[in-house]
Simulated scan of single mutants.
Amino acid sequence: MPAHVVVFDYGSGNLRSAQRAMERTGAEVTVTSDPRVALESDGLVVPGVGAFSACMSSLRAAGGDRVIGRRVAGGRPVLAICVGLQVLFDRGVEQAGVHAEEKATEGCGEWPGTVERLRAPILPHMGWNTVRAPEDSVLFDGIDPDDRFYFVHSYAVRTWELASHNPRVNPPRVTWAEHGEPFVAAVENGPLSATQFHPEKSGDAGARLLANWAATL
């Protein structure tokens, strides 16, 4: 029986692209805003586009933050994409204009850290980049280090703050990319995985990554 994957519809993200990409892995895919269905599925995909604050507000309004928290607590797989990755951190800091004050928005708090504007000569970071994945990565298994993934963002997590001091617990696997400076491109942390890039728009490499995730369900 194929795994049942929910693409969570909370008003943000490339829902149909994510749906089609997951269907190509052989999964049975439902696009829904129903928290109960999202909670009970084999795997949950949380896309996200736009501003951190707007994405987080919509996610909370749909109960998505609670669904993510309950799934992670129960060891149920979650894959977040783009701003979906960003809202998993403690906070996002955005600037409305050149002379505007920075405004911080509270995130889901699954990981410590702050989403900040990249220090790069050209923003947004839009296009294809290689990434540096750890050797024991599950998501990037079988993917060539020279393969590229599609990014479109101006904000990112620039430092990784979560450390594991328990030798019986596997530390998070963090993948990095660079645009002006290093930033977090993906995280694998138990049942919770996330990518800053769009695997559903990343050709064969993205398809392999989604297949790797689907194989864990």
Rank of each mutant, 00 (worst) to 15 (best):
195 T>M: 13
171 P>A: 04
29 V>A: 08
215 A>E: 08
94 E>L: 03
176 W>Y: 06
121 P>V: 15
216 T>N: 06
147 D>K: 12
76 R>P: 06
214 A>M: 13
94 E>T: 14
79 L>A: 13
73 A>N: 01
8 F>N: 14
180 G>V: 01
189 N>F: 13
107 G>M: 12
204 D>S: 13
170 N>F: 06
51 A>Y: 12
86 Q>C: 05
74 G>S: 00
16 R>N: 15
141 D>V: 05
203 G>W: 09
19 Q>V: 07
74 G>E: 08
206 G>D: 04
31 V>K: 10
168 R>V: 10
7 V>G: 13
113 G>P: 00
135 E>G: 05
123 L>K: 05
22 M>H: 09
158 R>L: 15
215 A>Q: 00
64 G>W: 01
25 T>L: 01
88 L>C: 09
177 A>C: 02
68 I>N: 08
84 G>I: 08
34 D>P: 03
73 A>F: 06
120 A>T: 07
210 L>T: 00
36 R>D: 15
19 Q>R: 08
14 N>S: 12
10 Y>C: 08
12 S>I: 00
76 R>G: 11
129 N>P: 07
71 R>Q: 11
102 E>F: 10
59 L>A: 05
98 V>Q: 14
115 V>D: 09
64 G>L: 10
203 G>A: 09
90 D>K: 01
39 L>F: 05
172 P>Q: 02
